[in-house]
């Protein structure tokens, strides 16, 4: 399995950091992974499991990880055009787009806009749309909520968060075991997320009107214990995408790929292999 954690992908005006993992089979499908509030760790166990079934490309959004700052390209609109450019730049003829959390919002936007290379869409606990009434939140405000509370909501079992990857509520992990380098990167990611998503907070008020434009097979994967973005929100989200499958992973919270990597990969591989992604 070929792995490159230091690959770069040039898409004007950015030169993005990208984790690339070559699939086991040359003819395996290509998956473009759009990360959530932090880039995907090259050591995350789900990557190797997933590479059994696909070639993986996981860039860091502008301003995240070691990707350059976004300059004036600091809106979701910019990210949609950026990732349409990434689809153009990838050598594969067809690409399945996989978006996690914040990256799920971007993936939904890209899919609603459409792209000739787009083959399938997988949304993993995405943010991105407003469903509840004007006095109800669909999800907690990530910047105005105590990180300890976010951490409690983000995991099925907060006492057993996987090490080496940082999910929502990562601030509670700050301590002697965390390196200065990790802190600098996490601070940079947090700042960049804020630029894109402070207001409206983690959604585009117009997106739900255009999800019906998504014209590729779609799978919405949700952790049963996700108390950041709940499965109820996920069901309603999936219902707005024509023909989308909604599937729940047990004993997982907002980051099922980290908490239940085998179950996650099993659902994804079934879906990209032609199934519907249900267990």
């Amino acid at each position: 399995m070929q792995r490159s954690a230091a690959a770069r992908l040039r898409v004007r005006p950015f030169d993005l950091e990208m984790v690339r993992v070559g699939g086991k089979r040359r003819d395996a499908p290509t998956l473009l992974l759009l990360h959530g509030i932090n880039p995907i760790s090259p050591t995350a166990p789900f990557l190797d499991l997933l590479a059994e079934h696909a070639h993986l490309a996981a860039p860091s959004h502008p301003g995240f990880g070691n990707s350059p700052d976004m300059g004036d390209c600091d809106t979701i609109y910019d990210l949609v055009h950026l990732y349409r450019g990434v689809l153009d730049a990838l050598p594969a003829e067809k690409v399945t787009l996989v978006g996690f959390s914040f990256g799920g919002w971007i993936a939904a936007e890209v899919a609603a806009a459409g792209h000739p290379k787009l083959d399938k869409l997988i949304l993993v606990a995405p943010f991105g749309i407003k469903l509840a009434g004007r006095e109800e939140r669909d999800f907690p405000h990530l910047f105005n909520t105590n990180p300890a509370e976010l951490n409690r909501r983000a995991w099925h079992d907060p006492t057993r968060c996987p090490t080496g990857s940082y999910g929502i509520g990562w601030h509670v992990a700050i301590g002697d075991a965390m390196s200065d380098e990790d802190m600098v990167t996490l601070a940079r990611n947090w700042d960049s997320l804020c630029l894109y998503a402070w207001r409206p907070h983690m959604y585009n008020p117009q997106l739900k009107h255009w999800l019906h434009r998504i014209a590729v097979p779609a799978l919405a994967l949700w952790g049963a214990s996700d108390r950041i973005v709940t499965p109820e929100y996920g069901r309603a989200y999936a219902a707005l995408i024509p023909g989308a499958t909604f599937s729940v992973i047990e004993a997982a919270g907002h980051h099922p790929e980290l908490e239940q990597p085998r179950a996650f990969v099993e659902r994804v591989s079934r879906f990209i292999g032609g199934g519907d992604g249900r267990p």
Partner: peptide
């Protein structure tokens, strides 16, 4: 002030200063 309104608010410290501020 709660940590999310102070040291953990985005932009509260430059990223390179985060280790000192957070620790």
């Amino acid at each position: 002030s709660a940590p999310q309104f102070s040291k953990f608010q985005p932009g509260a410290v430059a990223p390179q200063m985060a280790p000192a501020a957070w620790r």
